[in-house]
Amino acid sequence: MEVTITVNGRTHTKSVEPRMLLVHFLREELGLTGTHIGCDSSHCGACTVLVDGTPLKSCTYLAVMANGRSVETVEGLKQGGKLHVIQEEFKEQHGLQCGYCTPGMMLVGKALLEENPNPTDDEVRFAISGNICRCTGYMNIVKSIQAAGKRMQAESADAAE
């Protein structure tokens, strides 16, 4: 079946089996391997992407369901050669260790900050509770997302002046 999916702003038309999971479409058909697979049962969030802006588990979503939709992956965060603030803050706050959960965490964080630019510790924890990290104990992931929120606010305040 032919699908047309916009991924990180680029439109791709491909013929896929209806059973192909979105995560495999991204990784195998497009070579975008930043989206990871960690569990099979929809419990870890390593495969998180944004579909029309909403964070979803791409291992629990068929590629055909994304037909005509817009998908953002970790590879789309950096724009015009410039890292997204959330990427910078994950590095700055040591929000990652092995890096396997990081793409999902950053995308969920980005979606959260768009709705709630100044989340509390508990609000961040609630938002990332569909994403498992085995390395960091979440402490610095929370800090990274909060720090990104603060910077984004400060930057938009600067821009408004």
Binding site: L32, T33, H36, E75, F90, K91, G99, T102, P103
Partner: peptide
Amino acid sequence: RVEDDRFIVGRGNYLD
């Protein structure tokens, strides 16, 4: 960490 530069842009190279 220097290794973060590739992980935060999804350019790690894991087994799969």
